[in-house]
Write a protein that binds this DNA or RNA. Sequence first.
DNA 1: TATTCATTTCCATATTCGTTGAATTATGGA
DNA 2: TCCATAATTCAACGAATATGGAAATGAATA
Lengths: 110, 110
Amino acid sequence: MAALAQEHRLEVYRRLMQAGPEGMAAGEIASALGIAPNTLSFHFDRLRHAGLVSVARKGRSLIYAARYETMSNLLGYLTQNCCGGRPELCAPAVCKPTKPARKRQRENVG
Amino acid sequence: MAALAQEHRLEVYRRLMQAGPEGMAAGEIASALGIAPNTLSFHFDRLRHAGLVSVARKGRSLIYAARYETMSNLLGYLTQNCCGGRPELCAPAVCKPTKPARKRQRENVG
DNA sequence: TATTCATTTCCATATTCGTTGAATTATGGA
DNA sequence: TCCATAATTCAACGAATATGGAAATGAATA
């Protein structure tokens, strides 16, 4: 989770999300965001280690792409562990745009 | 967001979430989590500065409580900014436990 | 008032983090 | 092979972070 707690990494990740499954070349992101390539490489390492991005070589460029599943897991973790037992307090902000209707639920907390 | 990117702070916040609106005394959390009181005070400062907790004095103890609204905002921010344009990729993990039956059902994510 | 308890603030330290510059690996083309 | 491009690794630095001990603050109590 700490991987997204840094401005540059968050920017990078958002760009990759916008780029979609095709991803973007490292240099492309570097020039788009104005980050030095080696600095960006450092951040990529963090993102990759956190499982937030995947990488594949294409020619002489390395293509990075966001891993949606990990973000999904992160959101699930936050709602389960941080809002656990009281999802009605946190879920609305996330679920509202998709489906505002909720039922009551009962969940035990260790 | 960086406020939760630290193990101790995340633990503290989860405890406060579990404690509910009544909150917990600082010393109570300190002994429960095995964190030195002054160190904990440092982390409380971060959490409070991030708007994640509120504090109120009760007798000679300071009662900290989680602010659900901020977590709700955080989840909203993550879904909007990181999953923006593709909420169908992230929302399922959050919305599923509340009401699984409406559209297609997805396999559970770790 | 003096004392005691709970918590914070101050200070000092070891660690981690983000960044830069130089050197290195990897791919593609002449 | 040699060269250019793309990205990484390495070494190092300043800044921020997390932590603990000592002292100070605030509030209840005798």
